[in-house]
Design a protein around this nucleic acid. Structure first.
Lengths: 232, 232
DNA sequence: GAACACAAAATCGTATACAATATGTGATCC
DNA sequence: GGATCACATATTGTATACGATTTTGTGTTC
């Protein structure tokens, strides 16, 4: 524990808590791809030494959420279009099968939890907090992986969804915003019905929709990371 | 660079080089599951401070090759039987599809490389170095993932194979040793023929064979880590 | 002789200090 | 006036120092 200036006692930030806080901020698009993550700055924010911050940044680098270059420091990753395709192709390989398993195993409380997630997501959208809505939308997917009971695959999916959040920040086409309103609802219904075939198929088409809602045309001349770092 | 006592110049060990060295040693079964990895000891071995060693251990912990418990330090991970099933189920989900892609894309030099791997593996077996043979056998699988050209999925497979090495160390049944002699050869042939269907099917059955060659019966009473640490 | 309590050693977790590298600024030269 | 070099500043990389926790060993007591 550490005692701050206003004499409130806050639990000391750890590697995990910092990594999670940063991960959440990235998920919710509060920090954009390319943003520099200075060690000293973060150590001030979280009230710990650079040692702990460095460890947190390293774990995020290991799952490709941040990019660390020697003597240059850490910045929020800027996935290339190639990487974006790969991430969604990996999701298309893993998640439909996982949804199938989830349909087999889902309990009533699982279904209730998923419905709560959907409601929270809509509430966030109504509250004009699209970042939070996006995060909750991702949480919906990780929750399904958890229900499927394959922790190893679930952790892969979790990192893929985190990276998807970066990809969406970089390549999302505004025009195609409302596609998934019904997709999650239909998926929950299939899970509740233990309809494995339909759950798998719905997940697959949902992911294909997401994938195709990205603008991943090759923009050869441009270095996207730079462009984004400059931003408007 | 750092100048050692005998005035030979060796490149300074980095986080990556230490992580890779440890990873290789685990792959080759030179250090058994459960082995304590003391920070000071490793820092002496690699001629760096504990800072760098800690970073290396953390990256290995992130891919579940080592286990870090607070104030207890790092040790080589001891995957549970549950985890072992999960790892092989994940491989059975990822690798057959990856082999299919590899069959589509494999070039002549890819095939040559794979055949070299197989030869090296046999040579290692002849040289009575089963650890190295196991490592090369894993490398065969990661190489196929690389040929498939999906770096993201390939990195997942890579970590799964590393963990498989631990699982094999813990749960392999000696009796079923020679099953995969022909499996890799047949797979290379399918890849060379660009026979996607057969490559996928051969990979699937190969993994099922491996999975079923493990003794994953629940042994409730025993703590395997201890038993192995004492070993003969 | 066994069990408990306490002390000592070892090891880990975090902070800080120092070194190496990159970046920014200003002076100098053409 | 513009380019270039040198120095100052900032940030990262690594080592060391110190405090906290756990483990181990010893001695005492029952």
């Amino acid at each position: 524990m550490t005692r701050t200036a206003d004499s409130t006692v806050t639990p000391a930030a750890t590697r995990e808590s910092i990594a999670q806080a940063l991960s959440l901020a990235i998920h919710e698009h509060r920090i954009a791809p390319g943003t520099k993550l200075g060690e000293y700055e973060l150590s001030e924010i979280y009230g710990v030494s650079r040692t702990v911050v460095r460890a947190a940044l390293q774990t995020l680098a290991d799952i490709r959420l941040v990019d660390i270059r020697r003597n240059k420091g850490a910045s929020v990753a800027c996935p290339s279009t190639t990487e974006a395709h790969e991430v969604f192709e990996a999701r298309e390989l893993l998640e439909p099968r996982t949804a199938r398993s989830a349909a087999q195993r889902a309990t009533a409380s699982d279904i209730a939890l998923l419905e709560r997630h959907i409601n929270d997501e809509h509430a966030a959208l109504d509250a004009n907090d699209p970042g939070r809505a996006l995060y909750l939308s991702g949480l919906f997917h990780t929750e399904i992986a958890r229900i499927a009971g394959q922790a190893t695959i679930a952790s892969f999916i979790e990192t893929l969804i985190a990276r998807s959040s970066l990809i969406i920040a970089l390549y999302w086409r505004r025009e195609s915003a409302l596609c998934e309103k019904h997709a999650h609802h239909a998926l929950v219904q299939a899970l509740a019905d233990h309809n494995e075939q339909q759950a798998e198929e719905l997940m697959r088409s949902h992911l294909v929709d997401l994938h195709s809602a990205l603008d991943l045309r090759e923009r050869n001349g441009r270095t996207l990371s730079l462009k984004d770092a400059l931003g408007p």
